[in-house]
Amino acid sequence: MMHQMYPQVAHNYTYELNKDFNFSAAHAIPDARAGKCQRIHGHTYFVNLTIAGDILDDLGFLVNFSTLKQLVHDQFDHYLLNDLTHFKGKSPSTEVVAHTIYEMIEAHLATLPHAPVCVQVFLRETPSSYVVYRPRKKEQSHG
């Protein structure tokens, strides 16, 4: 696993959890403006999720690390992203994949009674290219 320092997110939560993992997938950007990326090609994507919250569950977890990996890895690893329902009608660019991962994680977090939130998705597509997705501050409010 690549060890990396990730961009920091300003928040006022008590706990911050970061989970790193990777998945291998192929995609194509279906537009001539994408140049050679319009052809099917693959990447080993590296993901860092930043989850924050004020309350731990009964096991003392903000979120179980293995659950976070399963939510994304099992759905994307060794797939052609263009074929997945998450990307129907969308170009599976790194930006769109990062936002989709955020939505998947937030959907799970919304089911947890202690209300953790995803504050950042870092998605590296190549050694020299990555995207950071952060929800707008109003989506991070907690009460």
Rank of each mutant, 00 (worst) to 15 (best):
D58L: 14
P92D: 06
L17W: 01
I29E: 01
V131R: 07
N48Q: 11
A34Y: 08
K137W: 04
V119M: 02
E139N: 09
H142T: 14
E139F: 07
A98S: 13
P113C: 08
A28R: 10
D20I: 06
G53R: 04
V9H: 01
P127I: 09
L62D: 02
Q140Y: 01
D58M: 13
S129M: 09
F122C: 04
Q38I: 04
I55D: 12
I51D: 01
M5V: 15
E103G: 12
Q75D: 13
D77E: 06
V121E: 07
I29R: 02
V119P: 02
K88C: 10
H78M: 08
K88T: 14
I105D: 01
L112M: 10
E125I: 06
M1H: 13
G60I: 13
H3E: 14
Q8I: 13
V97A: 06
H11A: 05
T94I: 12
N18M: 15
D54C: 10
Y79N: 13
E139C: 05
T85P: 13
D74N: 15
R124E: 14
S141A: 07
L81R: 04
Y130G: 00
Y79H: 15
Q120I: 00
K88S: 15
V9T: 09
V97H: 01
M2Q: 15
N64T: 05
Q70I: 03
R39Y: 07
V97I: 15
V63F: 07
Y13C: 15
K69C: 03
V63Q: 00
A25D: 03
R136M: 07
T85G: 09
Q75M: 02
G143A: 15
D20H: 13
E103D: 14
L17P: 00
D54G: 13
G143Q: 12
H108K: 12
V63I: 09
Q38C: 07
H86E: 14
T44E: 09
V131H: 06
V119H: 00
A25W: 02
A115T: 12
R33A: 05
L81S: 04
V117D: 04
L71C: 07
Q140C: 10
I55E: 15
T14P: 02
H114N: 06
M1C: 05
S91F: 04
V9W: 00
F23T: 12
K137M: 08
E139V: 07
Y13T: 10
L56C: 10
L84A: 10
V119A: 03
M104E: 11
V72Q: 00
S129E: 14
K36D: 01
R33I: 02
L17N: 05
T126M: 08
V117W: 01
A10C: 05
L62T: 05
P113G: 08
G143M: 10
S141G: 06
H41A: 00
T50N: 02
E16K: 10
Y15E: 09
F65S: 03
L59R: 11
L84D: 09
D20F: 09
I101K: 03
K138M: 05
R134C: 14
D20Y: 12
A26D: 03
V121D: 04
H11F: 06
H3A: 13
Q75W: 03
P7E: 08
L71N: 01
H142D: 11
N12D: 15
R39G: 06
Q8R: 15
K88D: 14
F65I: 09
I105L: 06
Y15S: 07
I40V: 15
H3S: 13
L112H: 02
